[in-house]
Structures are given as C-alpha cells and as structure tokens.
C-alpha cells in the first residue's frame, strides 16, 4: 500500500470519524443550551424551578434543565443541619457561596414531596467559610442561610442553591428529623 493510499485512508477516515461521532452525539444527547426552553417565560429562575416537580435529587437535574438552569462549578455550599422546631416545621441552616462572586445574595430553595416548600436568600457571614474557601472581593458577605419549612419526620428535602446567570447547585441534606 503506497503513501497516497495511506493519505487517502487517513483523511477519509478522519472525516468519517468526525461525521459519525458528531451524528451519534446529536442523536444521543439532549441539548444543554444556555437558552431557556421556553423563551417566552420571563419569570425569575427561582420561580421557574418552583413550578417543577422535584421529589428527589435525581429529579432536580431534569427539573433544573427544564427550567433553563445549568450546574455551577463556582458555587460551594453545605447544609449544616436541620432541626425540628415544632410538629410541622423544621429549620434548615447552612451556607452557600459563589467563589467568584461579589457578595450578591444567592437563593436557596427546598422541595419536599415534589413541591417547593421554602426559599430564602443568603444573608450575612458564616464563621470560617471565608478562610476555608478563600473568599475575597466581598464574596463572604452574604453566604449564610436559615429558614423554616414544613416537613414531616423522615421526609427527604431536596435543597438547591441558585445564583446569577441561570446557575444552580444541589445541596445534599439529611432527611427531616
């Protein structure tokens, strides 16, 4: 087999591989576009997500995509704990930061049994976060969240942090006490 033949095989092979690879990609993967699934929907990200049914953390991925949200790699946060305050209500506390942010408050939403049962904006500092995550540029100013929502003992709340540019992050939480 001569040089020309190898050259032909290489070029045709590459073009075929690129074409088939792209075709398989198009057919097999859902779009993860920046654009909103419904461009006419002008509601805020939190409202769009609230209108979705979220019963588990795996539901959250689909619901967020359907609401036009993308997973953020800049957000960091934890649910520090959930405590029961009465027979019906619990209080959740934790922190959420945008590591490249400027202190603009972020939103935290909680779903129980498919529906959104509570939401709040981050407000104030949380001890030790600024040092451990190396925050600067005022990003440590509004990181703490604490709010109450209805939750029966043993129910699994699904917590999501939402921020600018249609980004979100799941915040793992234990079941309600």
């Amino acid at each position: 087999m001569g040089t020309a033949s190898v050259q032909r095989t290489a070029i045709i092979g590459f073009l075929a591989a690129a074409f088939i690879g792209n075709l398989v990609l198009i057919l097999s993967q859902p779009r993860t576009t920046h654009a909103l699934p419904d461009p006419g929907d002008k509601r805020a990200a939190l409202e769009r997500l609230a209108s979705r049914k979220v019963s588990s953390y795996s539901d959250l991925t689909g619901a967020a995509a359907a609401a036009g949200l993308r997973l953020s790699r800049r957000f960091v946060g934890i649910v520090d704990g959930i405590i029961r305050i009465d027979e019906r209500q619990v209080t959740i506390a934790g922190w959420l930061v945008d590591t490249d942010g400027d202190g603009t408050p972020l939103d935290v939403a909680v779903f129980v049994g498919g529906t959104m049962v509570g939401a709040a904006a981050t407000q104030g500092e949380w001890p030790g976060v600024a040092e451990s995550v190396r925050l600067g540029f005022g990003a440590d100013k509004n990181v703490a969240f604490r709010f109450s929502f209805p939750c029966r003992a043993g129910d699994q709340p699904v917590v999501a942090g939402l921020g600018p540019k249609e980004r979100y992050i799941p915040l793992r939480s234990s079941p309600c006490p």
Partner: peptide, 12 residues
C-alpha cells in the same frame, strides 16, 4: 486514531 476521535466526539 480515527476510531478514537469518533468515539471521543460521540462521548462529549
């Protein structure tokens, strides 16, 4: 190589 490229693109 070309098979590898095709697979890498398809798995994006």
């Amino acid at each position: 190589w070309n098979i590898f490229v095709g697979v890498a693109i398809a798995r994006i």
